[in-house]
Design a protein around this nucleic acid. Structure first.
Lengths: 242, 242
DNA sequence: ACCATATTCAACTGGTCACTTGAATACTTG
DNA sequence: CAAGTATTCAAGTGACCAGTTGAATATGGT
């Protein structure tokens, strides 16, 4: 560069950090984070995503384009609809580490949350190592309380699908002598908390898992997918979770 | 939760994503990213950080407080000055993966950049595996072209400190029969590019490393630190790098 | 105690972003 | 080819954010 004026250097620096900031900007609106979190679990249509985030379709579409400009998600036309998905497996890992980083801040909230909740489900949450050992020892059953569509589009092998809103239908055959561990979408999702509260009120031994299906998948557990099955519009069954 | 109104659920969801967005907001201003990148290499004073980012001290202070509110950095008073550092080793890892995620977007820029640059240093950059094998085979020398203060505060074992602005003083003893690999702060830093251009103009075989010292450190290489040595105010020697 | 230095606070301004609304585009189905 | 559905575009509004300036706070040295 010797004979190089310094201007292009600053230009490069400015441009580089501007590009980097594009990713940051994509992650600074809560609505986009909700969308991204849903997309980390599988591909979805615009309408479904708008429902999850509580946005108008037009608004959700704009948020999605911000995410796409940041190269975090990509879209593809499939028949009548346009489906969005994360652009890369790395995005899932990156977003997960962001959530883990925020978990520290969240801990204060979780304490406050457990105080208004009937059962301190969050504080007794089950970590990965413990859950694995519980399952291996055969003294725990893991139930996946997400809506059944999500279970179908990808779940950890060995878990049983019991959507939260159908939990009462399956109470009869749940073992009273084993511990029940509820699995949902992760620490930002409260489906498992609700399930645990219900089960405990019935006298069963239940706890929630700290991590969600996506985190387990990232840590290398085998995942089963029902291929060909696609998530169509149906936000029903999602009782404020995530 | 059974007997729980759904309002607190939405409150939790909203609060959780708001907290997560705090981190995103901290990363959406280029100036803050520059600051964070410098902090990933070691603790600094406000004045130094302001110099790196090209901001007024008051402005840099405000940016630092945004970063602190997001729990990404922490501050400590040391005598007359206040030094900032990353709050957690995980922050370095997280920020690194963010940069890697952006690298894809950057590739287009790197091509454009190499076109105006005398030598296509970026395109021939050396990755980790290759560099390790080159060093093991004894056919490459690795020079650390960052300012000497940064080298002192932490560098990879086996590398030699040759600050870019003193490169001409060390030309005599650089081996002509080996390949010279220049190491700097990473792909967002152009110090190594400049060094390579100088060396090539002199007929030496030189390439830059893709990654910076921080990335190498994260991947497990032994790091040497001169303890007790602290980075005092001195932006001099930083020729537009980062 | 006083001054110099380092950092933060407070008030202000221009620009950018999120959300709304109404229209336009693109594809599928009859 | 027409009608319907899904998504995107375009314009407008209110809120928030980055940067500036000048003053306030806090520490160390004399």
């Amino acid at each position: 560069m010797v004979s190089f004026p310094s201007a292009p250097d600053d230009l490069f620096k400015a441009y580089a950090y501007e590009q980097l900031a594009t990713i940051g900007k994509a992650l600074c609106a809560p609505a986009r984070l909700v969308i991204l979190n849903v997309l980390c679990q599988g591909e979805r249509t615009v309408e479904v995503l708008a429902g999850h985030a509580g946005l108008s379709v037009a608004n959700a579409s704009q948020h999605l384009q911000v995410l796409r400009r940041a190269n975090l998600v990509e879209s593809e036309r499939q028949g009548n609809k346009i489906i969005y998905r994360v652009a890369d497996r790395n995005v899932v890992g990156f977003f997960t580490s962001m959530k883990e980083l925020a978990a520290e801040r969240m801990s204060s909230l979780q304490v406050a949350f457990s105080e208004i909740s009937a059962a301190p489900s969050r504080l007794a949450a089950v970590g990965r190592e413990e859950l694995l050992s519980l399952v291996e020892a055969g003294i725990a059953v893991v139930i996946d309380v997400r809506p059944s569509e999500e279970y179908r589009s990808g779940h950890i092998a060995g878990t049983v699908s019991i959507p939260l809103d159908r939990l009462s239908d399956h109470l009869s055959w749940l073992p009273a002598d084993k511990e029940i561990v509820a699995l949902c979408r992760g620490s930002y999702c409260i489906l498992a908390d609700k399930a645990v509260d219900i089960l405990r009120e019935l006298g069963l031994s239940a706890r929630r898992a700290i991590d969600g299906v996506v985190e387990w998948e990232l840590s290398g557990l085998p995942v089963e997918r029902e291929t060909g099955q696609r998530l169509e519009a149906s936000v029903e069954g999602d009782h404020g979770g995530q």
